[in-house]
Every structure is written in C-alpha cells, then in structure tokens.
C-alpha cells in the first residue's frame, strides 16, 4: 500500500513539472499564466507535505484544561502536524493571489496593445 504522503508529494512534484511544461511549450499568455498557477499549487502542496504526519490533526488546540494539567500539556506536540509550514503556505497563497492578479492585468494590457495573446506574434520582443 502506497503511503499517503508519497502520493501527495508526487502529485505536488508532478504539478510543478506540468506547470513548467505549460510555461515553456504554450504560446497563449493565458495558458502560460495557468502554468504559473499550477507551479504555485504544486509548491504549496509540497511545502504542506513537509510537515504532514498521517494520523495527526490540524494544530488547533481542543483540550479545555490544557493549561492546568501538565501531563496533557506534554502530550500535545504528539497530536498535531507542524504549524510552521501551514503558516508559510498561508502566506504563500496570499502572495500567489496578488501575483496572479498582476499577471492577469498585464495580459489584459498586452492584449489591448497587440490584439493577440500569442507570444510568438509579439515581434517587438524578438531579437
């Protein structure tokens, strides 16, 4: 039986590769941008997997008398997955949204100037 973490990391790595393939092979700007979004999604999945341990739950403390009982307190880290990677990915998702919006805005402007989304026909960029 294949381990869930292996499956998730493989999916993340595959998403990154597919995204890069789309960026390099496609000529349509929207499709290239979708490639970027797939790379971002793959990276997020990979980072989450670095702190994921099967059988543990999200780090939201749900034991009411945690502060008074030292025995409960010391058992706490064994129940939860790593909060650091989750915080990093939350940051990364927000920034990915902003960057995607900026990319889309440039796509709209480029379409307005060149009247095409095909990068092969942006002759002013060729050397």
């Amino acid at each position: 039986m294949i381990e869930p973490t292996t499956l998730y990391t493989l999916t993340g790595a595959l998403l990154i590769l597919i995204g890069f393939a789309a960026i390099m092979l496609k000529r349509n700007l929207i499709k290239m941008m979708l490639g970027f979004v797939m790379v971002e999604a793959g990276v997020h999945l990979l980072i989450i997997c670095f702190g994921f341990i099967p059988g543990r739950t999200a780090p939201i403390i749900n034991t009411p008398d945690l502060l008074t009982d030292p025995a409960l307190m010391s058992a706490v880290p064994q129940q939860f997955v790593d909060p650091v990677v989750q915080a990093i990915v939350l940051t990364a998702i927000v920034i990915a949204v902003g960057v995607t919006a900026l990319m889309l805005a440039y796509v709209v402007r480029l379409y307005g100037v060149h009247k095409t989304l095909d990068v092969g026909r942006y002759v002013s960029l060729k050397w």
């Binding site: 381990e3 869930p4 973490t5 292996t6 990391t9 493989l10 993340g12 790595a13 990154i16 590769l17 990979l46 997997c49 670095f50 702190g51 994921f52 341990i53 099967p54 780090p59 403390i61 307190m73 010391s74 706490v76 880290p77 939860f80 997955v81 790593d82 909060p83 650091v84 990677v85």
Partner: peptide, 24 residues
Amino acid sequence: LWQAVPFTAPADISEIGRRFVEFG
C-alpha cells in the same frame, strides 16, 4: 525534485513547530 523532496512523512514535527504547539 527527486533528490530534494523526501517522499515519506517526517518522523516528527520540527523543533520550532513543537515549541509553537507546546507554548502557543
């Protein structure tokens, strides 16, 4: 990616993560 990514779950959460969970 094949070299850099560990394809199995880590044995335990990172030291800093453990501190955050314990004293958060």
